[in-house]
């Protein structure tokens, strides 16, 4: 099941053909390398955008990240726990 985390995190991202994609992030002292982006979508916060990414690492752990355009911040929103 999903577990809400909602913590600010540091993220390293790349731009591919104008699309921002996270590649790794630091959370709880761990550096997590993103192996696969399973889904991404956008929502609006006023005139600013929030970009959401569902990602998995090599160990098939699942994370949901959000980039808030208004404050240029990344958040870890959710993780999956069995």
């Amino acid at each position: 099941m999903d577990q809400e985390i909602n913590q600010p995190i540091e993220v390293m991202a790349v731009f591919e053909r104008g699309i921002m994609l996270p590649v790794r992030f630091r959370w709880n002292g761990r550096v997590i390398k993103i192996a696969h982006i399973t889904s991404r979508w956008r929502t609006n916060e006023g005139r600013f955008r929030k970009k959401h990414y569902s990602v998995m690492n090599q160990n098939s752990e699942f994370f949901q990240l959000t980039y808030k355009e208004r404050t240029s911040e990344w958040f870890l929103n959710k993780i999956w726990v069995e």
Partner: peptide, 9 residues
């Protein structure tokens, strides 16, 4: 204000 910063502000 809502247009700029979002509905809940």
């Amino acid at each position: 204000i809502r247009d700029k910063f979002g509905e809940d502000v």
